[in-house]
Design a protein around this nucleic acid. Structure first.
Length: 271
DNA sequence: CCGGACGCCTGTCGGC
DNA sequence: TGCCGACAGGCGTCCG
């Protein structure tokens, strides 16, 4: 579920609540996520101060004194600050405990998420080693995107979902950025011209930045750290809108399958 | 290396 | 109303 804007929304919500405070432990109720949770997580984080809450691609990178945490929300994860007396639901798998009875609660019905204890530099974890450029950082532009697409015959949309090409773009924002750039998702990646790569890189950045401003996209269950939904769904041009008129040219939005994922596009204004 | 298929889980929705 | 299959925002792995 959560793509870069949703993870960034979550990060912005929890960072001010965590940074500078000490963890009092952790409560692991269900250790079976994408990778098993460390059953001794609580003892290992207890007493450590939170130095920073950062984001890389769709990962939250939490730096602690002498250790680190790597957290991924998978398809259905969310984080929320709760009070100790709030009873956990069936999918509230783990809490990070703070002082004063506050907890950061990790809910993840589908359990594709991840919470790993790492060394002092969680950013150096192997899971992050092969990630491509951050789309909102200066290192990402038409030139670097074109390099990522060079020599690849796969559909350009498949490569936008490849975190080695660009980090953090998921199915919603790949569809939206391609629509904004006027590029058909099935176009072979190496046939996207330099000029169109420039346009596509700009479209990716704009789409992600606007979605962050809106607090992300809530289709069903995404919630920010205070339980609030994201409001970008109303600004989606194509995703989930099969049969509706294209906001630019009024032709009906089509849906097809590319790379085993539903793909929405306008056949009139995307070429 | 590349492209494509699959599995991991649970919830929800549409069709019959 | 109830059941059953299809599908969902991710991503690592395996196969040819």
């Amino acid at each position: 579920m959560p793509e870069l804007p949703e993870v960034e929304t979550t990060r912005r919500g929890i960072a001010p609540l965590l940074e500078g405070r000490r963890l009092a432990g952790a409560e692991v109720r269900c250790p079976k996520l994408r990778l098993p949770l460390d059953p001794r997580l609580g003892a290992k984080v207890r007493g450590r101060r939170v130095l920073a809450v950062e984001r890389r691609a769709k990962y939250l990178v939490i730096r602690l004194e002498g250790a680190g945490l790597l957290l991924h929300l998978g398809m259905s994860g969310s984080l929320r600050l709760v009070r100790a007396h709030e009873a956990p639901g069936p999918h509230d798998h783990v809490d990070l405990l703070l002082a004063r009875g506050e907890r950061l609660r990790f809910r993840d019905p589908r359990r594709f998420g991840l919470l790993l204890l790492t060394g002092p530099d969680p950013g150096g974890h192997p899971l992050l080693a092969r990630l491509g450029p951050e789309p909102l950082e200066p290192g990402f532009d038409g030139t670097s995107l074109r390099k990522g697409l060079a020599g690849r015959s796969a559909a350009v949309k498949v490569l936008l979902l490849d975190s080695r090409v660009v980090a953090g773009v998921g199915n919603i924002y790949a569809c939206e950025a391609l629509h904004r750039a006027g590029i058909r998702p099935s176009t072979p990646a190496d046939r996207v011209s330099a000029g169109r790569c420039q346009r596509l890189a700009a479209a990716i950045r704009e789409t992600l930045a606007e979605a962050i401003v809106a607090g992300g996209t809530t289709l069903r269950d995404f919630r920010g750290s205070r339980g609030e939904p994201g409001y970008f769904a109303s600004q989606l041009a194509v995703y989930g809108r099969a049969g509706e008129p294209c906001p630019r040219c009024q032709a009906p939005i089509r849906v097809t399958t590319i790379g085993q994922r539903s793909t929405f596009y306008c056949s009139r204004c995307q070429h």
